[in-house]
C-alpha cells in the first residue's frame, strides 16, 4: 500500500482527535473511508470477483455519512460539545499512543510493515477518539476509525478478505451506526445535547 494513502489515513484520523465540530469530524472520517475504498477499487483490477467488497466499502461510507449526517442535522447543538480534555492534550495522548503501541506490536505476517503499523495505529486512534471525546456522534466516528484500521489491514493482504466476511462487517457496522444514531437522537431529545458527560447517573 502506498505511503501517501497510509499517511493520509493517519492524518485524517488524527484530525478527528482535534476538530471541535461534529460535521468536520464526519467529513474527515468519510474522506478516510473514501481513501480505503479507492484502494479496494484499484485492487479489483477489473476482476468481477473483487467488486462486491470494494462496492460494499463505498456503500458503507455513503450510508454512514448519510445516517450520521442526518443525525447531526436533526440535532443542532447550540455550541460545540466540549471534549473535557483540551485539543493539545488530546493530540499528545493520541501521538503518544500512536508512537508507542504500534512499535510494540511484533511482526504480524503482513508483507508491508508500514501497513501493519498504520492498521494498529488506526485501531488505537479509534479507541482514543471514543474515550477522549464526549459528543455522541464523534464517539461513533471513533468506532468507524477503528474499523477502518481493520479494513486497512485486510487491504494489505495479498488475497482479499472473503466477501462473506467483508460484506458482513459492512452490514454489521451499518447496523451499529443505525442503533448508535438512534441512541444519539434519544439522548439529545432527553438532555438537549449529545454530550455524554450528562450520562453520569450510574455509579457505584
Amino acid at each position: 500500500m502506498s505511503s501517501p494513502i497510509i499517511i493520509g489515513c493517519l492524518a485524517l484520523g488524527l484530525g478527528v482527535v482535534v476538530v471541535r465540530r461534529r460535521s468536520v469530524a464526519l467529513m474527515l472520517v468519510t474522506a478516510q473511508s473514501l481513501l480505503l475504498a479507492s484502494v479496494a477499487l484499484s485492487r479489483t483490477g477489473g476482476h468481477v470477483d473483487s467488486l462486491p467488497a470494494a462496492g460494499g466499502l463505498l456503500l458503507r461510507l455513503v450510508a454512514i455519512a448519510t445516517i450520521l449526517g442526518i443525525g447531526i442535522a436533526r440535532t443542532r447543538e447550540t455550541q460545540p460539545v466540549r471534549a473535557g480534555i483540551e485539543p493539545m492534550a488530546r493530540v499528545v495522548i493520541a501521538l503518544a499512543a500512536l508512537l508507542a503501541i504500534p512499535s510494540l506490536v511484533p511482526p504480524l505476517g503482513f508483507g508491508d510493515r508500514n501497513a501493519q503499523h498504520a492498521a494498529v495505529a488506526l485501531v488505537v486512534l479509534g479507541i482514543v477518539i471514543a474515550l477522549t471525546r464526549r459528543a455522541t456522534i464523534v464517539q461513533i466516528l471513533g468506532i468507524v476509525v477503528a474499523e477502518n484500521g481493520a479494513t486497512l489491514a485486510a487491504l494489505s493482504a495479498s488475497k482479499a478478505v472473503p466477501d462473506v466476511i467483508e460484506l458482513g462487517v459492512i452490514f454489521d457496522l451499518l447496523l451499529i451506526a443505525v442503533v448508535a444514531s438512534a441512541f444519539h437522537s434519544r439522548i439529545f431529545g432527553h438532555f438537549g445535547s449529545g454530550d455524554t458527560a450528562q450520562l453520569r447517573e450510574l455509579r457505584d
Binding site: 481493520a150 489491514a153 485486510a154 478478505v161
Partner: peptide
C-alpha cells in the same frame, strides 16, 4: 476483528 484479520492475512 483486527486479530481475526491478522489470522486471515497470515
Amino acid at each position: 476483528f483486527l486479530g481475526i484479520v491478522i489470522m486471515f492475512v497470515a
